[in-house]
Amino acid sequence: MRSDTAARASDASPAGTPTPAGTKLTAEATQFRTRGKYAPPIWGHRPGPLTNILRVVAFVILIALVLFPFLIVVSTSLSTGQAITDAGGLVVIPTEISLEAYTRILTGGVVTQSLLVSIVVTAAGTAISLVVTVLAAYSLSRVGTLWHRGLLMTVLLTFLFAPSIIPLYVVVQGLGMLDTLWALILPTSLSAFNLVIVRGFIMNLPPELFEAARIDGASEWWVLTRLAVPLSKSVIAVVGLFYGVTYWNAFFNAMLYLRDTSNWPLQLVLRTYVLQGAPLTLDNTGEIPPPSQAVQMAVVVIAIIPVLLVYPFVQRHLTKGVLTGALKG
């Protein structure tokens, strides 16, 4: 009976070594396990060579599909005009490295100006959003307080209503925020989704800590700043990334609210110069300008760099499941 079970089990691994006896399966798995920390579960089978090759191929293809466009853009932005012409328009592997495109766009002009706008909007916006979100999340994490249900419904109901462009425009106009950077910050500064994530995380923290502090006479403000916030650093980092990326990547609100191009954020400049191919007006000092292709790609790279800088610090929280834990919790 036992050997029969094992034989059927081993059929499942296509090119696996046959396991004649039941005990062999466990022995093999144990042996496999001692090779490293990442052993398969005790009932698992050593995958056959064919399966393994397929998995490696799939792994490499997935990585390449994601990273290939980055490679082209970075390579082209770093190339000289001659190298780009030789390659036929885009460079996959750079031959001659040149930083000319970057020095050109970062020494004043439209791109530099828009970069500053984007940095200001992203920094101020993320700070405002985080403060508002954490305050509200903590407040709503206290079940049973005055008006709790009504306030919670006010937040949750926003999930049901799609934002409407024109009435929002009328409100922004009415508040006198057209053509100011506030129009890029305040209308998108609160995300109910992020609020629910932070609230869920705070509610999952051990309640005894909070109770103990309150019994000792701690104020809500003290509990929030000394207990809830320090314990929620990981989820605040994740939500901060979400907010920061939203502000950094937004272009439509600028298109809608800003008529004056001097306040344009980087993404809108990127759209105009790279996607629509409109000429890039730079301070021309009489030198031959670098190829527009390299300049275009350099703008793309500059728009990506902040995301790449922040992402590594936050991604470990993402892969550890801070987000989904809070959502489900």
Binding site: L140, S164, P167, V170, L186, L190, E220, W221
Partner: peptide
């Protein structure tokens, strides 16, 4: 104190979601 904490969020929701 909890009500004060949620005031900014409620104000933003009223202005940019419920009034629109």
């Amino acid at each position: 104190p909890l009500l004060v904490m949620i005031v900014p969020a409620v104000a933003l929701m009223l202005l940019f979601i419920y009034i629109p």
